[in-house]
Write a protein that binds this DNA or RNA. Sequence first.
RNA 1: GGAGAGGUACCCAAGUGGCCAACGGGAACAGACUGUAAAUCUGUCGGCUAAUGCCUUCGGAGGUUCGAAUCCUCCCCUCUCCA
Length: 404
Amino acid sequence: MLGVKKQLELIKRGTIEIIPEEELVRKLESSLKQNKPLRIKMGFDPTAPDIHLGHTVGIRKLKQFQDLGHQVLLIIGDYTGMVGDPSGRSETRPQLSYEKIRKNAETYQKQFFKILVKEKTEIHFNGEWFSRMSFQDIMGLASKFTLARILERDDFTERFKNQNPISLHELFYPLMQAYDSVAIKADLEVGATEQKFNLLTARQFQEQSGQEPQVILTIPVLAGTDGLQRMSKSTGNYIGIDESPGEIFGKIMSIPDELIYPYYELLTDIPEDELLKIKKELETREINPMLWKKRLGKELVTLYHSQKEANNAQTEFDKIFSKKELPEKIELFHLKSDQPKIWVVKLLTETGLCASSSEARRLIKQGGLYIDHQRIKDENLQVDLKGEKLLKVGKRKFLKIVRD
RNA sequence: GGAGAGGUACCCAAGUGGCCAACGGGAACAGACUGUAAAUCUGUCGGCUAAUGCCUUCGGAGGUUCGAAUCCUCCCCUCUCCA
């Protein structure tokens, strides 16, 4: 195991706060002395089936701890997921069914280990302890906290001030997350900055239970591909680590230029000195930022797929968007029809390229449709179905049609 | 339980009897431009229709009216104050 100083240096990279830092130093020292790894906790609520880049900021931090020889504990919030974390939220989260959550939890577990080492990771569902609690237990937990403390939180205050509803069950979320730490005796918990309140609550609970309180380590919240809101599935501005190389690469290319640097910093393993160089070049605009974006896309595809696929993704992108050529592979659609011709609009809806006829008409009027490289302007066109037809809809949808 | 305010399209948000398929903004989509699926600009943005047009929509259900998102009745939901 590395020395305390060296460990601390690594741990601090890319973190916002460590509270309290002296305690972490002390914990690291005693861990080293007793050769006993620290218990590092992070929780995830499986509210969507995918792990996205936003999650990986924390998971990568865990990986660091893992590499340093500490014990990583993942808490899958099957119970907290049903409540929905109000942190940073301006409205109540929709409540998910238990089945849905368990199902998401399965895909989560698979995706975690694209980053973490499975054998060295301990996974717990918080239903393990919550499902066994009686109403009495829950009341006991609730009695340790006051309304004033809960309402201190910015998100609740905002909602209250704006006269938005706050459901009672949401007030329990911090208590549940805090209790998780008690249940697994965490030494340190990693969470995004907006989690600070929940993380701190755990310290209080642990102390009251006679445990040494956990150190909290906060990491930045990753902005989504829109550059405005935090990355999340529900706002659709996310990049899932299980997505195809082409999608990951393309989505990276769609992020605003200002996001290039933060993404490098939080999502890649690029060494410090190179980071500085990138930052400088982006600021001075010496180089077209697109180039840095492409490299970023490649880094990420390499991380979650492979180097080879990363190269392919870039080649494809260049082909389609820079050179405006065709992609390598185009899906073939078998159109069932006994007519030799078909109305364009119908063709677009039948193939699922457009959701409605109106949308298809619009698209054609706007010049977004090409058939066999010819721009189609006539929305009444009857398309001859002889042989194979190549459709291009908008910039990025391609389809080959063949009549069955 | 009492008094008041509110529920409008994916989101925010105007609209208080016909000029409303519903202002504006965001998102999304298309086009132009750019060595970016960035930025910027332009356009589109309920459905069906070649089109004049037709059909469905403003929390839900009824009603008044030639005509309702707008008025009335009941119901559901949210917020505020009182208890």
